[in-house]
């Protein structure tokens, strides 16, 4: 885990690599190519790069038009603009027609840091997940981010790929088996299962260690595919441990936690405690400070695990918040 690589960097590298292999890839950006890391593709394949300027709505609907001509389009900007500002274009021009536009959104979540709430997208998983035809991937590291780009290319239909700004450890060795609708078991445990995605995989791994120190055996799944969800893995985990914690750098409403609760409430109701940002906007600060202030640390996940285990023992005890 020596290397620290931001998922957006892995995205840019994967695009360059795929660009050489597949002539039908078109990449678009809205004046953020040096941040989203599409700049590498742009300089290697300028004829297949479309710079749209600061016009995200126009970019998404233009991407849809390009996709109707048989191209696979990767459209990139910050998550707050991709999923927020251009929501209607993603909905009506891309998702409704099930077109091959891969919305690869970087700078998702609180870890954007100093830019503050206007740029900290905490609702994109919820917004994208509710769109019919849309798949949602949230890779945690460079390995899975690289895979996600290739998977998005190969998938027939729109895909939203959520990418981060900050460098993160490489958790997954090359050759790890990923699939759309899959997950990676990171730890086995009998008392509780933690289901994490994206930036929260690191804190979740750490939480497994904190819990072990207290004699608690926690399983961990890297749920990089949020839609389709790896329902089999979630149901198996819920069945074997009877208590679930979800962890995401996203609002507690509608994201990974929401998806897990929706599944379990109808199929296998067990206590689920969701770790994420409460129903509030973020603020400026160092990413590490923000993760502490908004309850996204390993200790928060471990605390949530203890609460979930407590509820399992006494099912009628209401969840303590």
């Amino acid at each position: 885990m020596a290397d620290m690589v931001a998922t957006r960097v892995a995205y840019g590298k994967a695009l360059e690599e795929l660009g050489g292999r597949y002539g039908d890839i078109v990449v678009m950006d809205a004046d953020l190519s040096k941040s989203t890391m599409t700049v590498g593709f742009a300089s290697k394949y300028p004829d297949r790069f479309v710079q749209m300027g600061i016009a995200e709505q126009d970019m998404m609907a233009t991407a849809a038009g390009i996709a109707t001509m048989g191209k696979k389009v990767f459209a990139s900007t910050f998550a707050v603009f991709a999923a927020g500002r251009a929501y209607d274009q993603v909905r009506n021009s891309i998702a409704y027609g099930c077109l091959n536009v891969k919305v690869c959104a970087t700078h998702a979540g609180l870890s954007v840091g100093e830019d503050g709430a206007s740029h900290q997208m905490l609702e994109d998983i919820a917004l994208m997940r509710v769109l019919p035809n849309m798949s949602v991937l949230c890779p945690a590291d460079a390995t899975s981010a690289g895979w996600a780009v290739e998977a998005a290319y190969g998938h027939d239909g729109p895909v939203y790929v959520r990418l981060g700004r900050a460098p993160v450890p490489v958790y997954h060795p090359e050759g790890t088996a990923f699939s759309i609708g899959g997950s990676v078991p990171m730890a086995k445990g009998g008392d509780v299962t933690i289901i994490a995605c994206g930036m929260m995989l690191g804190p979740a791994l750490e939480a497994v260690g904190l819990l072990a120190d207290q004699g608690i055996s926690a399983g961990l799944l890297d749920m990089y595919s949020i839609k389709p969800l790896d329902e089999g893995a979630v149901l198996k985990a819920a069945g074997s441990t009877g208590a679930v914690v979800t962890a995401e750098e996203h609002s507690v409403i509608g994201g990974l936690g929401g998806a897990v609760c929706e599944l379990l409430s109808g199929r296998l109701p067990v206590p689920v405690v969701r770790v994420g940002v409460d129903d509030v906007f973020g603020e400026s600060g160092k990413p590490a400070q923000l993760m502490v202030k908004y309850g996204l640390t390993a200790a928060d996940i471990a605390g949530a695990a203890l609460r979930a285990i407590g509820m399992k023992r006494d099912a009628i005890r209401p969840q303590e918040v």
């Binding site: 078109v26 479309v50 709505q57 126009d58 998404m60 609907a61 233009t62 991407a63 849809a64 038009g65 390009i66 996709a67 109707t68 001509m69 048989g70 191209k71 209607d88 274009q89 909905r91 009506n92 021009s93």
Partner: peptide, 15 residues
């Protein structure tokens, strides 16, 4: 949803 078709048409012309 108005305003989007012209963008899409641009996309077709670009491709």
């Amino acid at each position: 949803s108005l305003g989007q078709g012209i963008s899409a048409a641009n996309g077709m012309a670009i491709a």
